[in-house]
Design a binder for these strands. Structure first.
Lengths: 413, 413
DNA sequence: TGGAATTGATTCGAAGCTTAGATTTAATCA
DNA sequence: TGATTAAATCTAAGCTTCGAATCAATTCCA
């Protein structure tokens, strides 16, 4: 007697319906309010299928059915179409920049609109408190956005250290890396959030591609250029991470002639200006001489150069030479369309960019990559973290449960 | 009266069945002969489903049903299982190395087993004949493999030029690139073959990852190092191509201290040896002095060094220094696990590799990438082309029609 | 030698989804 | 008011997949 010992294991994790629902939800994400006909065109499913799926997604809390039928401007004949829309408040995402001196947490809705932001200064050496400070900053941001922690669907954290696929950072660099990334990944996964911990320059690259100067390019480099150089590569549309997330660590640039170290624009211009003043070779009326020592930095030099100060101009040219070499090597080895200068310095590059570009043209075979300044300012990393967190949610959406579906709000007829 | 104007367009291109069939076929590719039970475990589909799909794939010519039930060694109780196997002869793939001086065409079956190979020397300057010579070489290879052109499912062509996603090469470099790639992509697509034209170093990288010294690594660089350096990057399991397929063009290395040019190991060791002899500083008994001028090249130097010749050893150390710098920059910027020395020179590197590795350790922060010599010899590019062509077939398999399904050969019961 | 035991093939009804087409509904237009 | 239009809704049918029951081909063991 065969006892019907079935070989039933857990079945294939995807059904066609699941795939179709995901496609529809993705379409909703890509558009504003839409009608069934729009969705039919986009998904190539039959009308009945689309409507069934939409209704189910409304039921589950992902979509809202909008009241007005043909309110959407374009006046049309025929029976008014039902309209649906992604519920931007069906959840929230967290983007954290856990930087060396400052932790920033941003909250956004499912459309990526930032709802709130909080920041805390932090002692770079206090290792233990780092996680606690980050938690507190996140809680403040959530509170000020009015988002309950249960509504958070994912979090991305940027750290100034390489990270592996699990979000861990290798020991090394005198424990600096593990101090900067004290087990963030495990910590946030415990809170039930989809979590990614990523190198800060990589997140900057994602931000540039999503909202910044990388939009439209499939291969570009985001060059973080404050105190230290660090880069995030996006080539062929993919973030290039490397064995341990170390791609974009630029220590190897020390071997490039005329570069020598990985000190960034901020650090070097400050040093150079100080050295120059100390040597006494600066004209008395130059801002390089008159600015109080504590405020003498990259910004002062760049601004002075723009207003024609010859000493500052010399420093700018020296920096342009150095930058051009960095760009030539990175751009040449990776064949990118653009190199985006990212981070806080990007706002005041002024003359530096065109001069670097001119020198780059001499150094490379055409076409040289285009050099552009990021419009995103000092918040790039947290913006990139938000963008990445949103990507994660979108990739897992059909498997997630929307927060607080407001059933009553959907229109009966 | 509504005339039932259906909005039927061509429907979504994928059915669940199609996806399942693809998964099953892919499983068949990953294993040798298998039973339905094996497939059930692998695909997590129900038994009836699996058997239906297998029978259909047999019918279509993708699979063969094997005669013997439990011939496969392991003695088992119970009713003998039907056994299936991918028909390796259901099609063929072509891998072509259209090099500067020599065109090589290889034919393989669907398991990647090479069936035949043909090569033709070619004048590097004769532009027009390049396509014709390639065609002829392919035809010879096909004929000697006994494969009709109609059985070819895909072709990958390696060229010494960057290529874009469509397989075109930019003008530039004094027309050299377009001479090396005279519209191969369009040409072979006209013959009805799935076609990919790819930079030769990139194909070398694919070969190393599939059969060579890159197996098991998800991030590595294949460094082609004969007359000129050229590299193929695989990072995070993806080939990194760049804006115009120019990633891996190493001209930017000219900016690295102690490197200067992109001349390869072969070219430089020859030059250095010739210079050294001309300067008269070579010991009379050294192979560097005794070898006839025309044969004085990298191999002679490397072999002499291995047998202890001090002049040759000095050249090897000089080369090790240079290589170490190249590896430090590439490995450091991309964070790879390994750097594979690929191409014909790889076979005789001898002392050069450990000495380069030692110097690399000094130049980089640990862990330095591991340096390994390719076991694939001078045929890397055509092997990589075969591997890539096979990848293409596997990716498109369910949409393809197998060649000459031999219906009668399947076992009736 | 013959009946368990075992393993897999076959068969078949049920359930889940998607679809095309028919029908109904809600609007505009004349 | 009725024709027209575009969309929703309903319905029956088809395709896949699944699970269970049944059948088939062996080995094991008394």
């Amino acid at each position: 007697m065969s006892r019907g010992v079935t070989e039933s294991a857990d079945r294939a994790a995807f059904s066609l319906k699941r795939v179709n629902a995901a496609a529809l939800l993705d379409f909703a994400w890509r558009t504003e309010a839409y009608t069934a006909s729009d969705a039919i065109a986009a998904t190539r499913l039959a009308r009945s299928t689309v409507i069934t799926l939409c209704d189910e997604l409304v039921e589950r809390g992902w979509l809202a059915e909008l009241p007005n039928a043909r309110a959407a401007g374009e006046y049309r004949k025929g029976r008014p179409a039902r309209r649906y829309e992604l519920r931007a408040d069906a959840g929230a995402v967290l983007g954290v920049d856990a930087g060396q001196h400052c932790v920033t947490a941003a909250v956004a809705d499912l459309r990526g609109r930032e709802l709130a932001r909080a920041a805390t200064e932090i002692d770079p050496d206090g290792a233990v408190r780092r996680a606690a400070v980050t938690d507190a900053t996140i809680d403040r941001a959530l509170a000020s956005a009015g988002v309950p922690p249960s509504a958070v669907m994912s979090i991305a954290v940027g750290v100034p250290a390489p990270t592996d696929a699990d979000g861990g950072s290798p020991d090394g660099e005198h424990e600096f890396w593990s101090r900067m990334n004290p087990g963030f990944a495990a910590h946030f996964r415990e809170r039930g959030w989809l979590t990614e911990v990523e190198n800060d320059a990589n997140l900057a690259a994602i931000a540039e591609g999503a909202l910044g100067a990388g939009v439209g390019a499939s291969s570009y480099i985001a060059l973080m250029s404050g105190e230290r150089f660090g880069a995030g590569y996006v080539v062929d549309g993919h973030l290039v991470r490397g064995r341990r997330g170390g791609a974009g660590e630029l220590r190897a640039l020390a071997l490039v002639e005329g570069v020598g170290s990985t000190e960034g624009i901020g650090a070097l211009l400050r040093e150079w200006a100080v050295d120059l003043r100390r040597s006494g070779a600066v004209d008395e009326s130059s801002p390089l001489a008159t600015t109080p020592r504590a405020r003498l930095g990259a910004e002062v030099v760049l601004r002075a150069a723009e207003s024609g100060d010859p000493d500052a101009l010399r420093l700018v040219d020296r920096m342009a030479e150095r930058l051009a070499r960095i760009c030539a090597v990175l751009g040449g080895l990776l064949d990118v369309e653009r190199i985006v200068f990212s981070g806080a310095v990007a706002e005041s590059l002024g003359l530096l960019l065109p001069r670097t570009a001119a020198r780059l043209d001499e150094l490379t075979h055409p076409p040289a990559p285009r050099l552009v300044a990021s419009p995103l300012g000092g918040g790039v990393v947290s913006l990139g973290a938000l963008a990445r967190a949103l990507e994660i949610v979108r990739a897992h959406a059909i498997g997630l449960e929307p927060a607080a579906p407001i059933r009553e709000q959907t229109i009966p007829f």
